[in-house]
Computed example of a mutant assay.
Amino acid sequence: MAFFGFKELDRLSEVDMAIYRFFTENVEKVPYMRVRDIATEAHVSNSSVMRFIHKLGYDSFPEFKVSFRSEQRRSQTNDHEISFITAENFPPDIYEKIELIADKMEQSDQIIFCGIGSSGALAEYAARQTAAVGFNSFCVKDPFYPLITQLKNTSNNLLITFSVSGKTIELIEMLNNFVNDEDVTLVAVTADPSSQLALMSRYVLCYSTSQERLAKYYDLTTQVPAMYLIEQLISTARRLAVEQDHESI
């Protein structure tokens, strides 16, 4: 019988309830305690603890501890997976925006994905996947790359930039070259819709996530929401391209 989610509380005596509450309030340390330690801290007898263990359906205390620890780990893993990314990570109109930008991708002559650090890795992945489904795309991870020179005398470019904060100075300076360029449409993928990156872009795909840093310099913020947006963009753009091909037949 599982301990977590035990529903037959009406079968428990006052002493059993005291032990049950102790377990639920000390889930981290119970697997490492002895029967007498639990009895002492729960203010019950050793025999009361063992009767409670047997009432839960376990033959021995070691069997209970193994099961308790296993349940605890599964519970923590499931909670993490469920909350890792949900609809709450995105604004209500996110799919309308994805459809709009995917349509721009399908119409563009060239798609440039840009980012630095972990966002640069995302940009590289996006460029590779986009090229794999038939779009003309490449990635820029160096903010000092002479992109303005490369895009000179070109038109109908879509520049998609990834940045969690939307405040990376080097990216902002590079994109400033294209703010008023009619041949380059700027798209921001960021967790901050009020950031400078978002404000200077024509289209914004935003998401919410807790930003985490280690020693102020190492960004440990999850990129799963941004990765989800990449997959949705590519899938939608591919669908639109197929629909366009069917219409032209």
Rank of each mutant, 00 (worst) to 15 (best):
A121V: 10
M17T: 10
R238P: 02
S165G: 12
E8K: 04
S47H: 02
I249Y: 11
S119H: 14
S210A: 15
E25R: 07
S155F: 00
R36W: 04
D103G: 09
T149P: 07
V49N: 00
P146I: 15
E25G: 08
F84W: 02
I116L: 14
I249C: 07
Q232N: 09
T222D: 07
R36V: 05
A42F: 13
S48L: 03
K104N: 11
H246D: 09
T154E: 10
E25F: 03
V44C: 06
F162H: 01
H80T: 05
Q223V: 08
G5L: 09
S45W: 06
R239S: 12
Q196C: 13
T24P: 02
A226F: 09
E96R: 09
A42G: 04
P193F: 14
F3R: 01
R51D: 01
N156D: 09
D103K: 10
L175D: 08
P92F: 15
Y218E: 10
K141M: 15
E212M: 12
T77P: 02
T185Q: 03
Y125T: 00
D37E: 13
A191H: 08
A42K: 00
K141H: 06
F6A: 05
S118P: 01
G166N: 05
M17W: 01
E8C: 08
E41K: 03
Q244P: 00
R21H: 07
E173Q: 12
A237F: 08
Y32C: 01
I112M: 12
L159C: 09
T40F: 07
